[in-house]
């Protein structure tokens, strides 16, 4: 998912930066608002950021004989809605671009758009749709976390195909070529990440029940007495 430094033509780099910037700014405001209005959220917010920090640092082997990174953006998107992850994900990418020569400053916009915008939104949508279809929390978490991962890499493939369309078959050919590198490798990783998300939520449903109820992830166990504390 990390398009390396200098590997997108300048126009594309600028375009994706402009596309990602409003999401990141909006995300920063969402984080500030969340912390200000619900100071009790800070812990879980930290956990969501930490989850993506760990997972995006790990390279995992896949059935294709290559390895790739999970993303870890799903749980935060499910808990706090996607805008929050636009900021947290970009912070992770910035850390990797500056200290690890992984990704880059010129490609930060494109990478943030894939990793911190499209991934979280897709994961959140998958989570909501799965729950709306009547599934329980855990299947929905699995779907959301796994698809946040997969969608990130599909977006990267699309970005690369836009910049480097295939000489003969154009955009579609380029997309298929880059999907061939990323998507197949990513499928087992996405499944593994989905399972890790389920493990995380199993811990949270037991230990962070009040927070999950307030965030609307769990229904309150008992009906709240009307006229209680505002």
């Amino acid at each position: 998912m990390h398009i390396a430094e200098g590997f997108l033509p300048a126009g594309h780099a600028a375009g994706w930066t402009i596309a990602a910037a409003p999401f990141v700014v909006h995300g920063a405001r969402a984080v500030v608002r969340e912390v200000r209005e619900n100071p009790g959220s800070t812990l879980l917010l930290g956990a969501a950021g930490a989850f993506t920090f760990v997972l995006s640092a790990v390279k995992l082997p896949s059935v294709t004989g290559s390895s790739s990174h999970p993303t870890g953006t799903g749980p935060g998107a499910i808990l706090f809605r996607p805008p929050v992850m636009a900021l947290l994900g970009t912070v992770v990418l910035l850390f990797q671009a500056l200290l690890l020569a992984h990704g880059g400053l010129t490609t930060l916009g494109a990478n943030a758009f894939a990793f911190a915008v499209v991934g979280p939104w897709t994961g959140y949508a998958a989570y909501r749709l799965t729950r709306a279809a009547g599934a329980g929390l855990m299947p929905a978490v699995f779907a959301g976390v796994a698809l946040a991962d997969l969608a990130t890499y599909v977006t990267t493939s699309f970005q690369l195909a836009l910049a480097f369309p295939d000489a003969e078959s154009g955009l579609v050919g380029g997309l298929l070529k880059f999907l061939g590198v990323f998507a197949v490798t990513q499928i087992p990783l996405a499944i593994g990440e989905g399972l890790l998300g389920v493990l995380l939520f199993r811990v949270l449903t037991v230990n962070a029940r009040p927070e999950l109820e307030r965030l609307g992830v769990l229904k309150p166990a008992e009906p709240v007495t009307p006229g209680g504390a505002a």
Partner: peptide, 18 residues
Amino acid sequence: PLLVDGGTSEFGGTDAAV
């Protein structure tokens, strides 16, 4: 994947492959 592969692949990163 590691066991099935039996040491034939490098498991290079997809980012670097691109």
